[in-house]
Every structure is written in structure tokens, then in C-alpha cells.
């Protein structure tokens, strides 16, 4: 259903809501297009005229500095006009419904909505109700999906490893609450990665983990052994209160990525993290700043990937 909502009848990307069900052809096209946006970011004049005159509304019903900023930079580098709405502090507090908010912004001649929402499925709901010329890009919804993060992670892996077909990838940490992990798993599987591992304590794994086509590991040492890519997930501090975990210190001891634990991965392994990092909780500073870390390039690539997604959905109505 999402796939149909996301693609035009002739198979072009109409909205980006989730990576689940998107064909490898589309994922690869996004990564290839992003590749062509990389040199634009390296120029002195970092702009192309593609979305000149288009109005992109950043609808953030949940706080996020990095994601909102990179979407804003991406839209501006495409020459779009960007309007940032921090909805957490505005109309919905006065009782307006989500669809009324969207209808009002559509009346202001919006061309694209970038949506971050605490409720899973909110971007889908908006996509079903917008006018044919308006595109929706999911910037993270509940525990469901964070497709542009998943895509920038794929871009990063492809950049450093050349492809997916011989890779062993470990996703470590709070998979249960992570929309990022879900998007990564869908993308890796679709792009032909033969071994995706999730490495986490039982309390931080979703119940349906067995149906996701991944190998489950409950020990860090075996979980990242011989891996080409180690993706650390952020431990969301608020989870501590839910009795899912004893303490941050305890978590670091068993699940924090230290230089010593990293030795079990391949010598040329890359370490990724979607940010924001908790140093000394899920990742040691020596790893975060070390030679295996590609965490900052991930951020740079994220801009090119978001430019690719926005230009593809904006052109799909043509």
C-alpha cells in the first residue's frame, strides 16, 4: 500500500514515506542521483536551480535539529524557498488537527512537505490527502521509518565498501525504538546485502524481529565479529526510565563500542552512527573520533541524499 502511494503509475518516486517495499531500482536511482549532487556541495557556489520558485515546508511536529537543518540546506541548495514550522509550539497546541494544518499550508501554495512526527503513519496520512502537485517526504515518524537516514546510510556504505553484495553489516543497540534501524534493514535487504545482523539485549528488540530477515545476536563480541560495517544506534535516554535497562554505565559495559570490542570486526570495518551520539554510552570517544569512524561523512552525504530525494519527488508530477 505504501509502495503504491509512493510511486506514480509509471513507476517514479512520488512521495518518500518508507523504504519498505521500494524496489532496488528506485533505491539505486536515489543513491546515483545523490552521487551527482556531491560535487555541487564541494563548489564555491553550492546551488542548482532545479526547485527555483518551489515552496518546501519543513513540518516538524517533533524536535530535531540535525535532520531539519540538513533538509533545509538540501532544499536551499536546490534553490527552493524553505519555510520552517516548529509545530510543537504552534497551531496544534491551539487544537488544530493535522489535516487542517496541512490544508492551510497547502492554501499557502506549498509544493512539498517534509514531515517529522511522533506518531507512526502521520506522513502517510498527509500524503493521502494532499493535492496531486504536492509531495511528502518522511523525516521520521514514530517507530516506523526514517527513510532519508536509511538512504544516507546506504550511500555511506556504498561509498566506502563499493556495494552490498559481499557485506556483513551489524546494527547494534536500541533496535526496538529505532525507526532508523527499520529503514536500514529494509534498504540493506532490498539492495542485496547477504548478512544483516541486529545486536541487542532482548529487551531492546522488537517482537517481530524474526520476521525481518536478519540474524539476531545477543552478545556484542560475537555480534560484530568479522563485520564490514558496524552501525551503532543511539540509546535514547528516556528508555532508561522504562526499566528496559539498568543504567547507562551498565549499558556501556556490555553494549558500548570500545576500541577493544571493535577489534573483532574486520580490520577495515567502518563505524556509523545516525547521531546524536551519547559518548560513553553506546560509543566510546576513541571509536567515534577514530580511523574507522565515518560518522561525520554521513552528515555530509545526508545533504546530497536529501537533495536527490527532493528533486526526484518534485519532478514526479511532470
Amino acid at each position: 500500500m505504501s509502495a503504491n502511494l509512493q510511486l506514480t503509475p509509471d513507476g517514479r518516486l512520488r512521495h518518500l514515506l518508507t523504504l519498505e517495499g521500494l524496489p532496488a531500482r528506485i533505491l539505486t536511482q536515489i543513491l546515483d542521483t545523490a552521487e551527482s549532487f556531491i560535487p555541487v556541495g564541494e563548489r564555491e557556489l553550492k546551488k542548482v536551480p532545479l526547485l527555483r520558485g518551489k515552496a518546501v515546508f519543513n513540518l516538524f511536529f517533533e524536535n530535531s535539529t540535525r535532520t531539519r537543518t540538513t533538509f533545509e540546506i538540501a532544499a536551499k541548495r536546490l534553490s527552493a524557498d524553505v519555510i520552517n514550522l516548529n509545530i510543537a509550539t504552534s497551531a496544534t497546541n491551539k487544537g488544530e488537527t493535522l489535516l487542517d494544518t496541512v490544508a492551510n499550508l497547502s492554501a499557502m501554495q506549498a509544493d512539498m512537505f517534509v514531515v517529522r512526527h511522533a506518531s507512526s503513519g502521520a506522513p502517510h496520512l498527509i500524503a493521502r490527502h494532499v493535492a496531486p502537485h504536492i509531495s511528502v517526504v518522511n523525516a521520521g515518524d514514530g517507530r516506523c521509518a526514517h527513510p532519508t537516514q536509511g538512504l544516507l546510510d546506504m550511500f555511506t556504505i556504498r561509498h566506502y565498501k563499493g556495494g552490498f553484495h559481499n557485506l556483513r553489516v551489524a546494527i547494534v543497540g536500541d533496535v526496538l525504538h529505532s525507526r532508523v534501524a527499520r529503514s536500514q534493514i529494509h534498504a540493506l535487504t532490498t539492495l542485496g546485502c547477504p548478512e544483516v545482523r541486529v545486536v541487542a539485549p532482548k529487551t531492546l528488540l522488537p517482537r517481530d524481529v524474526d520476521s525481518m530477515g536478519v540474524h539476531v545476536h545477543h552478545k556484542m563480541e560475537t555480534g560484530i565479529k568479522d563485520c564490514d560495517v558496524v552501525i551503532m544506534l543511539r540509546l535514547q535516554n528516556e528508555r532508561m526510565q522504562g526499566a528496559l535497562l539498568p543504567s547507562a554505565g551498565e549499558y556501556y559495559k556490555y553494549w558500548g563500542l570500545t576500541p577493544d570490542k571493535l577489534k573483532r570486526a574486520k580490520p577495515d570495518a567502518i563505524v556509523m552512527h545516525p547521531g546524536p551520539m551519547n559518548r560513553g554510552v553506546e560509543i566510546d570517544s576513541d571509536v567515534a573520533d577514530g580511523k574507522h569512524s565515518v560518522i561525520l561523512p554521513q552528515v555530509t552525504f545526508g545533504i546530497a541524499v536529501r537533495m536527490a530525494v527532493m528533486s526526484m519527488v518534485a519532478g514526479s508530477g511532470a
Partner: peptide
């Protein structure tokens, strides 16, 4: 591809 004058008519070229 990022500078074409027909982007709004035909969208983004699939192979940039």
C-alpha cells in the same frame, strides 16, 4: 540535468 529548462515538464533525468 540539474539545469534543464524542462524539469517541471518531464522531471529529473533518471541517470544523472
Amino acid at each position: 540535468s540539474f539545469y534543464r529548462d524542462d524539469f517541471s515538464r518531464i522531471g529529473l533525468h533518471p541517470e544523472v
